[in-house]
């Protein structure tokens, strides 16, 4: 059911598909001030991943972004507890330069945990091109790391102009546009076409019918990444939306796992 695809039938029947081991490229973890999360612990999130056929989650703990007193240690603890299922982005809080410098200095010694960096400029209220972010950008550019940035249409902090400027200035960064410049879908597609290292991440995109078809019709099937903000959104909701969309099963495989597998392999973080 859901649609006439073989993949849809498999997911609808079993809740997951062995032929389609999902990689979720945008997660968080832990409690957060604004939302009641029934499943916020690492254990509960792994349970959800099992139910939905999510093989690997790349996340940044809420504490790393919202609580400098705890920082990235919370992500590291979770990855080391579930090394086969979790990898983390190093959270960048631009207001604490010394802590960021220390985190970056330790990054290479913690490659078992971290695959890249995470920016949340709209929440930290600092634009991507501010000097406070420059050490993080340079670090990621030198190593060709993924940087997952929350991006939002119309934002002066992490909107299209900031994204285009960063993609031009740091061409080695694998730039993952979290939420795909939400609402500014045309500009998101244009930037993803213009820059080979820019990818569109689909958290909170899949609740708007038609955007996915627009991206695929723009030739971007190979640059779309599945994400859920877990523990925010039920992966089955996003999967069901992808199964409903008028795209092919090949596109669905690209979005749900193949593109992420290739990206992670390119940066030496291929899942087991």
């Amino acid at each position: 059911m859901i649609s006439d695809s073989a993949l849809a039938e498999s997911f609808f029947r079993h809740g997951r598909s062995d032929a389609c081991p999902i990689i979720d490229m945008h997660g968080h973890m832990g409690r957060w001030k604004g939302i009641y999360f029934p499943r916020a612990s690492a254990e509960a999130m792994i349970h959800t991943m099992d139910q939905c056929g999510v093989r690997l989650l790349v996340f940044c703990h809420h504490a790393a972004l919202f609580c400098p007193d705890i920082g990235n240690a919370a992500s590291a603890r979770a990855v080391r507890k579930f090394p086969d299922r979790l990898r983390a982005y190093l959270g960048v809080n631009p207001h604490y330069g010394a802590a960021l410098a220390a985190d970056l200095a330790g990054f290479d010694d913690n490659r078992d945990v971290f695959v890249g960096l995470k920016l949340l400029a709209s929440y930290h209220q600092v634009p991507w091109d501010a000097p406070a972010y420059e050490p993080a950008w340079r670090f990621a550019d030198q190593r060709g790391l993924p940087v997952l940035g929350h991006t939002w249409g119309g934002s002066s902090l992490d909107g299209p102009e900031q994204v285009r400027r960063a993609a031009e200035k740091y061409p080695n960064v694998r730039l993952l546009l979290g939420h795909s410049l939400h609402g500014d879908w045309g500009e998101a597609a244009a930037i993803a076409r213009d820059f080979p290292n820019v990818y569109l991440e689909l958290t909170a995109v899949l609740d708007d019918r038609g955007v996915l078809e627009t991206f695929v019709a723009a030739g971007l099937s190979g640059k779309l990444l599945f994400g859920t903000d877990l523990p925010w959104f039920d992966p089955h909701h996003g999967i069901g939306a992808i199964l409903s969309a008028e795209i092919t099963d090949e596109d669905r495989h690209n979005i749900l796992h193949r593109n992420a597998e290739r990206l992670l392999a390119d940066v030496g973080a291929k899942p087991n």
Binding site: I2, G15, D207, S244
Partner: peptide, 19 residues
């Protein structure tokens, strides 16, 4: 579902496999 602004399948799959 919220259709046609949203996809039919999102909450169908979520509900079908809710515990």
């Amino acid at each position: 579902s919220g259709f046609p602004a949203a996809y039919h399948g999102g909450m169908m799959l979520a509900l079908a496999h809710a515990e």
